[in-house]
Amino acid sequence: MATKTLVFPGDIISPEVLPIPTNPSLPLKLGPGLRHVPPSTITSTLAGPLCIDRKKNAIWVENNTGRYIPQPNDLIIATVHHSSTDIYHCSITPHTAFAQLPQLAFEGATKKTRPQLNSGSLIYARILSASKHTDPEIVCYNPSTGKSEGMGELKGGMLFDISMAMARRLLMHKQKADGGIALLEEIGGKVAFEIAVGRNGKVWVKSGGVNETLLVGRALQETDTQGLGIEEQVKVVRRLMRQV
């Protein structure tokens, strides 16, 4: 596979680079990092590799650094900051506007039985809506099915920071094949743990003891900061397990 073209802000995307869609009736979708300048120019707004998806007929610029910008449908880990009538105000990233979490947006919640979240609680939620003009709205259940699907309050455990690229890799369907993550499988063979990954660069880990939780967290962080490949990840896990 050829190396991707590197684009810079202001670069015009020439028609040759656009994907040949497998379904010609699909309109071209512009993802993050690209801007349409009428009538028919597409320019890049970020610096990074240009990615294309022929199946969805989409192009975008991959960008791994900077602050997380809330996008609808993303799964994130947020911290409850305070509550007002009927709404929890949660922080997805520090120093930005709070996201609104309706107090009834949980599985099986009614006016009489709703979860009581304190200031500082961690929650796993999905972004319902986010636009540049409004504060993001998040929910801890799937509105169409009413099920929590793993979302809700995260109790115990520990939070670790990871880069957004790492979060994206962990959230891929085929974690090992597409994301190159082998360490979770490796650790899972010996240690039991629970994990929740937020696209905003946060990972929640819960395991039997402090050492086990730290093992998972450190393995993730080392893989992230050093860009470790599959073999190296296995080595790191083995080294960390010996120390425990």
Binding site: P94, G120, S121, L122, L154, K155, G156, M158, L159
Partner: peptide, 11 residues
């Protein structure tokens, strides 16, 4: 400065 969450503090 953002305060750590209850989980982080307890851990």
């Amino acid at each position: 400065e953002a305060e750590p969450s209850i989980n982080e503090r307890a851990f």
